[in-house]
Design a protein around this nucleic acid. Structure first.
Length: 329
DNA sequence: AAACTACACAACCGCTTTAGT
DNA sequence: AACTAAAGCGGTTGTGTAGTT
């Protein structure tokens, strides 16, 4: 074992590559192949460590690298694969021809990660965020909004839809916390790894499972990634680029017990967009919680409108943060 | 126009894994 | 089996640039 000392060498150039250096590296590799990276730099007449040469070639100069913006499809693939593989950027990159692990990692950290956070989804777990700070910031946002409303204006310039979204998101996240250990709720998750389709008696089911009904335009696009329920999400991942993930998900899931389901290394994200053929499934999945003319969403929005003043949410949050025992429905 | 800020991306660092002896 | 060098990998940092004040 042991780290290669090449990058510690004194006098070896660091920092951005010049065009001249790029040309030398490309010429050399085109003629001779890279061979041993450690000795390549000298053979190619470059005052760089081998590691630096390798990275420059693999991340930038390689002729098969696809440059430019990531497409929506690539974004979808990355999110799906990340939900299964985690931060295994090199593995993810093998399913995106022409994209490097570095590029994907950067794209994730600067773009996708932020979008997920904005949607209230934890980018690590792909589940709704449950950290207290996040809830407090949502609560404060709503509080400010309500102050403005009381005086007939809106100091933050919050659009009504955004406020509404924050409300629903807050409620959803709180319920997630409350029910972390509630097996009944797990049982009613629209994604049921056991394959049975037990209708939910829990009116909060759709919120616990990560469903928002009000989204910004941008978030709508993102949320469509999570639109098919977990089993379909896995299948999407399976079908991408010939990727075979069956052994990772289904084989484990079929045999896993209800109690152990938390340990499945897969996300539990589910539908949140009205994508064709999907939204209908979601709604039919919560028929039991549906009133004659209104959907559960209508009911909940009404509930939120009735109860959405700052002190109410704060009280509820205080209760949540101090309550050790989960609430059962 | 200048200063500041946020963002994107290239490159580096250091740990882990792999292959060769 | 033990050791070493090289390559792989993921986290982090540095820098250039576009946008904003």
């Amino acid at each position: 074992m042991g780290r290669s000392p090449c990058c510690d060498e004194i006098g070896v150039k660091k920092g951005p590559w010049t065009e001249e250096e790029d040309e030398k590296l490309i010429d050399y590799i085109n003629k001779h192949g890279h061979g041993n990276w450690g000795s390549l730099s000298k053979r190619a007449g470059l005052n760089r460590c081998g590691k630096s040469c390798r990275l420059r070639w693999t991340n930038y100069l390689r002729p098969d690298i696809k440059r430019g913006k990531f497409t929506d499809e690539e974004e979808r693939i990355i999110i799906n694969l990340h939900s299964v593989l985690g931060n295994k950027w090199s593995k993810i990159a093998t399913h995106l021809p022409g994209r490097t692990d570095n590029e994907i990692k950067n794209f994730w950290n600067t773009n996708i990660r932020k979008k997920l956070l904005k949607m209230g989804i934890d980018p690590e777990t792909h589940k709704p965020r449950t950290d207290y700070n996040h809830l407090m910031s949502l609560s404060n946002l709503l509080g400010m909004s309500n102050i403005g409303t009381a005086f007939g204006n809106n100091p933050l310039g919050l659009h009504q839809d955004i406020t509404h979204l924050a409300k629903i998101q807050l409620l959803q996240n709180m319920l997630q916390i409350m029910n972390t250990n509630n097996s009944f709720v797990n049982m009613s998750n629209p994604y049921n790894p056991l394959g049975n389709n037990i209708p939910s008696l829990n009116p909060f089911n759709m919120f616990l499972s990560g469903t928002n009904t009000i989204q910004t335009k941008e978030e709508y696009a993102m949320s469509s990634l999570y639109s098919n329920g977990q089993s379909e999400l896995s299948q999407q991942a399976v079908s991408i680029g010939g990727l075979n993930l069956q052994e990772i998900d289904y084989s484990k899931m079929k045999s896993i017990s209800c109690e152990n389901r938390e340990e499945i290394p897969l996300p539990s994200l589910v539908a949140s967009s009205p994508r064709k053929g999907t939204f209908k499934q979601i709604e039919s999945g919560c028929d039991k919680a549906q009133t004659s003319n209104n959907t559960i969403f209508d009911d909940w929005e009404k509930f939120l409108d009735d109860e959405s003043n700052g002190s109410y949410w704060k009280e509820l949050l205080d209760l949540t943060s101090t309550s050790a025992s989960p609430i059962s429905w």
